[in-house]
Structures are given as C-alpha cells and as structure tokens.
Amino acid sequence: MNILQINSSARTQGSQSTVLANELTARLLAVNPGATVTLRDLAVTPHPVLDEAALHALFTPADARTSAQAERAALDDALIAEIQAADAVVLGVPMYNFGVPAQLKNWIDAIARVKVTFAYTDKGPQGLLTGKKVYVALTRGGQYRNTPADTQVPYLKTVLGFLGMTDVEFFYAEGLNMGPDAAEKGLAFARAQIDEAVHA
C-alpha cells in the first residue's frame, strides 16, 4: 500500500488537523505492515496558485514550453504523480472561513488535469483517479457538521468524486475554539471515529 498524506493547514506547528492526519496515517501503517508513506506538507512547501502564467504553461505543448513554463508545469506533474501512485490518501483539513484552506485548493487545482486525472466523454466527465480510499480529518472551531455552513464536505465529495475518488470517509473534530472541554470532546469524537474506521 502507498499512502499519501496531505497536510493543508497554514501552520507548520500546532495544527490539530495535522495531528489527526498523522494519527490516521499511523493507524493505516499499523494495519498495513510494509506500507509506504509520502508526506506533503503544504505549509512547509506551499504549491503556487493557478494563475495566468501557470495556465499558459499547462496549455502549451510540452515540447514548446519555455524553461520557466516547463519548470512550472513540473510542479503540478509531481503532485499528479504522487496521487496516481497512492492507494490511500489522508487529508488533514482545517476549516478557514467556512471553506478549505487556500493551500488545499492550490493542491486540488494542481492535480485536476484534463486527459490525465479526468476526461470528458460522450457520457459526461469520467474520473481517472480510481481505486483509492480517501480519509479526511476535519477540524473546526465551531459546530458545523450537517449544517448549511459546512461547505467543506460537499465540495470535497464533489471534486474528489469528479477525479474518480468516490470512497471518501470524513472524521470530525469540532468545537475546538469553544473552550477546553468542548475541544477535548471534539478531538475524542474524531479519534473514536478513526478507531472505528481503521482497525486490525
């Protein structure tokens, strides 16, 4: 098994979503001896935003790119290679202003490439990143699960499913900014979910 862990917090230290993602990966390693892990921390190594220069690079044929364009496209190619090789994906996702972190959106923009990770067919879009299990550790300061304010889960289900990753499981740590007791309860709930989902 190849495990790809993506930490999307803006924090390099003290991130609760990263703590839970680490625990998820450790659990997967415990039940899958011999598994390998690729870790990409988007706070340590931020991926560039999809801007006009990046679009020009990606839509220019590889043999016609300038050196700068080739270098920019190669950054996305590296992320695509990682997700293609993964059997399991662990995402650590805090909630920022009711959405996913910009760091995670940049990663998604990088791995979503037509004819590579999805294709348009006469029957509609087809995801090409199939056969992967995705685990998402969600951390929130308030309580948003199953409310209209939770835009993260619908978005992630949609975009991951569009790319072919339809087996997605979410773990919720909520109320983390509502006092020590609420935070402890929220983290305990997420860990109980992880225990139930990933066990020998």
Score class of each variant (00 low, 15 high):
residue 60 T to L: 00
residue 86 A to P: 03
residue 97 N to E: 07
residue 127 G to H: 07
residue 181 D to N: 00
residue 108 I to Y: 07
residue 168 V to C: 06
residue 10 A to I: 14
residue 141 G to T: 01
residue 96 Y to S: 01
residue 35 A to C: 14
residue 116 V to T: 11
residue 67 S to Q: 14
residue 97 N to H: 12
residue 48 P to E: 00
residue 28 L to C: 07
residue 198 V to P: 05
residue 145 R to E: 02
residue 46 P to Y: 10
residue 74 A to K: 10
residue 151 T to H: 12
residue 94 P to M: 03
residue 73 A to C: 10
residue 104 L to M: 09
residue 160 L to P: 03
residue 148 P to L: 09
residue 115 K to R: 13
residue 52 E to R: 13
residue 126 Q to H: 08
residue 152 Q to G: 03
residue 139 T to V: 09
residue 59 F to M: 14
residue 90 V to C: 03
residue 66 T to K: 09
residue 88 A to N: 10
residue 154 P to E: 05
residue 53 A to N: 13
residue 41 D to A: 05
residue 171 F to R: 04
residue 140 R to M: 02
residue 21 A to D: 05
residue 132 K to T: 06
residue 138 L to N: 06
residue 99 G to P: 01
residue 185 K to V: 00
residue 164 G to F: 01
residue 76 D to C: 11
residue 52 E to C: 03
residue 20 L to Y: 07
residue 155 Y to T: 01
residue 198 V to T: 05
residue 61 P to C: 11
residue 179 G to L: 06
residue 162 F to P: 03
residue 121 T to S: 12
residue 180 P to K: 14
residue 64 A to L: 15
residue 94 P to E: 01
residue 119 A to F: 06
residue 67 S to E: 15
residue 104 L to C: 09
residue 44 V to Q: 11
residue 191 R to D: 09
residue 148 P to S: 12
residue 141 G to Y: 01
residue 118 F to D: 12
residue 133 K to H: 12
residue 91 L to N: 02
residue 147 T to K: 02
residue 153 V to S: 02
residue 120 Y to T: 09
residue 189 F to N: 15
residue 187 L to T: 11
residue 25 T to R: 07
residue 196 E to D: 13
residue 36 T to L: 04
residue 4 L to Y: 09
residue 108 I to A: 08
residue 123 K to R: 14
residue 182 A to F: 04
residue 122 D to P: 15
residue 163 L to W: 00
residue 122 D to G: 10
residue 190 A to Y: 01
residue 101 P to R: 09
residue 95 M to L: 05
residue 155 Y to C: 03
residue 185 K to P: 00
residue 89 V to L: 15
residue 118 F to G: 09
residue 180 P to R: 14
residue 178 M to V: 03
residue 160 L to D: 00
residue 141 G to E: 01
residue 129 L to V: 06
residue 80 I to P: 03
residue 192 A to H: 09
residue 123 K to L: 04
residue 12 T to Y: 02
residue 155 Y to Q: 06
residue 40 R to S: 09
residue 192 A to D: 15
residue 101 P to H: 08
residue 97 N to L: 04
residue 120 Y to A: 05
residue 144 Y to F: 15
residue 148 P to M: 09
residue 124 G to L: 07
residue 69 Q to R: 12
residue 94 P to I: 01
residue 33 P to E: 13
residue 156 L to V: 09
residue 109 D to I: 02
residue 39 L to Q: 10
residue 79 L to M: 13
residue 18 T to G: 02
residue 80 I to D: 02
residue 159 V to W: 05
residue 191 R to A: 08
residue 62 A to R: 15
residue 150 D to P: 00
residue 150 D to V: 06
residue 103 Q to R: 14
residue 136 V to K: 02
residue 29 L to D: 04
residue 128 L to F: 07
residue 60 T to Q: 08
residue 142 G to N: 10
residue 110 A to V: 12
residue 115 K to E: 13
residue 122 D to N: 14
residue 173 A to N: 00
residue 194 I to C: 07
residue 99 G to Q: 15
residue 74 A to F: 08
residue 55 L to Q: 12
residue 96 Y to I: 02
residue 24 L to H: 03
residue 122 D to K: 13
residue 86 A to G: 06
residue 23 E to Q: 14
residue 93 V to C: 06
residue 193 Q to P: 03
residue 114 V to G: 08
residue 100 V to D: 04
